[in-house]
Design a protein around this nucleic acid. Structure first.
Lengths: 335, 335
DNA sequence: ATAAAAGGTGAAAGTGCTTTCATCAGTTGT
DNA sequence: ACAACTGATGAAAGCACTTTCACCTTTTAT
């Protein structure tokens, strides 16, 4: 190939065939008007250069395939991945494209939300664990972009919600039923402003349930750590080294529960003998760690979101649906 | 409405909002650079007029679609996710869309590979751990779709490779250096035909190194299990219950190494005292489990792939580049 | 032979958008 | 008080095509 560079344009074809671009264009759009002789020459050049009129290809491609966008806090946390998995499964079976928009900042989110309905070329949108305000919601609706929010409620949009408060209660009640009285909570520090914070809700349910049972939750038993294994472990260690350490810890996410388990291992604290640990999420790895936890059916919620989305695609005038997925306590070996 | 029919253009919006088209364009493409006040005004105008930028004009002006595709075996395995993470990070910083094509069967793969260059509307493609044959490669090239293969070599395409054989050797040599002589291998069963199987390569390197050291690898010490925690655990248990069990196990992936650890825990086998375990991948969770493993720099490899892709986008005539990422042994506490 | 119509082609003016570069008003540093 | 930035904006130059219009040959009709 003589020309190594770039995709050929109509100009290249024109030059190659010794005609003007006008004529080339006509061969493509109105072949009747061009001399058969010239036409053949041009067609030959088109083949030789492998010229593909771009605009056409694009329009066709954009029209033909369905595209669903997923806006997600950058999928560092395993729980996002697992939800994404549910989404991908259904989407692919329906032959829809999956476009991912990772969010790294509030700015990012804002930008996607205002821009996607316009330039995104999407048939539908799923927003994962991110806050959508009224203005943004209204814009999504006005631009007819069917949307499902996961883990964040908005009256005007479809939502798949988790009852985090209830989850906190479940954890508390379970530990209470096992006879624990000195129970601590370990959550993550506030996420950056752009994400939502279900962990606080879990804490509040947890606190409520304890209170109802007449159990005190001292401030020293409520600890937050950044969402990393190492820092969580450190904080868990501090909890366990208290003069009167808790006999049970509710970790607001499985990922952090693993940090707690690690701390216990290092300190030689026996689980569940000396310390009960319960998590939240039921990640894949919870099973590996034999972690007792509260499952929020991550894969399920992803699938469900897609299904709601498709339902709305079919009847766009449907009222927004709000679904609350049940939580399940999975009893394994750490509590 | 004053304006007759016709879809509104960026000019209409600009006029309506009392700004220049430049600023309107910026609201769509780089909202950060425009004053929030102005931005809101413009967004309001956009909504009022129902403006939708024409995708075709857009792509023409940009000389790109701003979309890159990733074909991946359905991302159930954590290692894919982690690579994807690297990819997503770079992509998003360059303002490109990430389109995911999950592959569930050989058929699927074949279909993507043949249709994406035509209708995919992509600027580039990344293929994750999937085999691409000559015919498919040729088509990708003919249609000018810059492509990077990860974990699968092809002479005509860019590749980011892992030296799995060397990885196997590293594992073997490390365990040998620790004085182990009875060393077992635990891999996953063959993946479905559509995926490639680096695990066999790891095994062969492992075997070689042992052989060179004059150590025997009895068939009973080479075990395969489906890629699930439970089944892996079962097989590991069988290994450990052998009359003369191994003193070290090389698990071909971290995920499976965790299964081994679990089996050991359940049998009361002390790690690393009675049993050394080494994995492969260095997943996030490897750190949690204190797993000694061979890191293949998953995030890195994803990033690298994107960078190679962009390099090719800039100079399309470049020869395909083949990069072999180094492996690193991460010594933690299980071996 | 001669005007009129037809056939074929190219120069150039759109098309709707992005992006570079210049401008200009405010800040900040000294 | 004055140079040196910074942030926000617009004018204008692309981008890859399509379309209009004017031009030049040929044919055909008279």
């Amino acid at each position: 190939m003589i020309n190594g560079n770039k995709r050929p344009t109509i100009y290249d074809v024109a030059r190659h065939a010794g005609v003007s671009i006008t004529t080339v264009s006509r061969v493509l759009n109105d072949p009747g008007r061009v001399n058969p002789e010239t036409r053949r020459k041009i067609l030959a050049s088109i083949d030789a250069l492998g010229f593909v009129p771009k605009a056409e290809a694009r329009a066709r491609a954009m029209q033909k395939n369905g595209r669903i966008g997923v806006v997600t806090p950058f999928f560092t946390a395993p729980s996002f991945v697992q939800r994404l998995r549910g989404i991908a499964t259904v989407l692919s079976s329906k032959n829809f494209e999956l476009v991912i928009y990772p969010v790294y900042s509030a700015d990012h989110l804002q930008r996607y939300l205002s821009t996607l309905p316009l330039t995104g070329n999407l048939d539908g949108l799923i927003v994962l664990s991110l806050p959508v305000n009224d203005e943004e919601a209204e814009r999504l609706i006005r631009h007819n972009l069917p949307t499902v929010l996961i883990e964040y409620p908005h009256p005007a949009l479809n939502c798949v919600e988790i009852d985090d408060v209830e989850g906190g209660r479940m954890a508390a009640n379970y530990l209470l039923s096992k006879g624990h009285r000195r129970i601590a909570f370990l959550g993550d520090t506030d996420l950056p402003e752009y994400a939502i914070h279900p962990v606080s809700l879990r804490l509040s349910g947890f606190r409520q349930a304890l209170k109802e049972a007449g159990i005190d939750l001292p401030e020293a038993f409520v600890r937050l750590a950044p969402y990393t294994q190492e820092q969580t472990r450190q904080v868990a260690k501090e909890l366990l080294e208290l003069p009167e350490p808790p006999t049970a810890i509710f970790a607001a996410t499985d990922f952090q529960a693993l940090g707690v388990l690690k701390a216990a291992r290092q300190l030689g604290v026996e689980v569940p003998g000396q310390l009960a640990v319960i998590g939240f999420d039921d990640l894949d790895m919870a099973e590996y760690a034999d972690l007792t936890t509260i499952s929020q059916h991550l894969d399920e919620s992803g699938k469900l979101a897609v299904e709601i989305l498709f339902a709305q695609l079919e009847s766009p005038s449907r009222l927004p649906r709000h679904v609350k997925l049940p939580l399940t306590l999975i009893e394994r070996k750490t509590a």
